[in-house]
Simulated assay, not measured.
Amino acid sequence: MTEIVLHDVDQMLVDRIKRVADARGWTLPRTLLHLLEQGLHVYEGDGSVRFDSAENDVLEAAMAALEDIPDDSGFALIGKVPRADEPGQ
């Protein structure tokens, strides 16, 4: 495999890469390879980001759970601020 060496990398960028490595439990070389691959997909492709299978499974489960929530007027209003011109205000 070809070795790539980066010089004069901003410390903030290095710290960000290390945080990704720590969060994923990856080595720095693996993290850099993954970030380069994903970045190239964005620039070479249509710009969309794709989930890996584990992330996709979690998202599908969350969406399925949300679909099972009953439609009730009280729950549907959580987090919404009524407009001043709405009746009952």
Rank of each mutant, 00 (worst) to 15 (best):
E3S: 15
E3H: 15
I4Q: 14
V9K: 10
D10M: 00
Q11I: 06
Q11M: 10
Q11F: 02
M12T: 13
M12Y: 05
V14E: 14
D15N: 08
K18V: 04
K18F: 00
V20H: 07
V20K: 08
A21D: 07
G25R: 03
T31D: 01
T31R: 01
L32M: 11
L33C: 01
H34F: 07
L35V: 05
Q38S: 04
H41N: 09
Y43R: 13
G45E: 04
S48Q: 10
S48D: 05
S48Y: 02
V49E: 03
F51K: 04
D52K: 09
A54R: 08
A54D: 13
E55H: 09
D57T: 03
D57K: 06
L59A: 11
E60P: 02
A61Q: 09
A62L: 13
A64Q: 09
A64F: 02
A65V: 00
D68E: 12
I69V: 12
P70D: 12
P70L: 07
P70R: 11
D71E: 07
S73Q: 13
S73A: 14
G74S: 10
F75E: 12
F75I: 11
A76T: 04
I78M: 14
G79P: 01
G79V: 09
P82I: 05
P82A: 08
A84P: 05
D85F: 15
E86W: 15
P87A: 10
G88C: 04
Q89W: 05
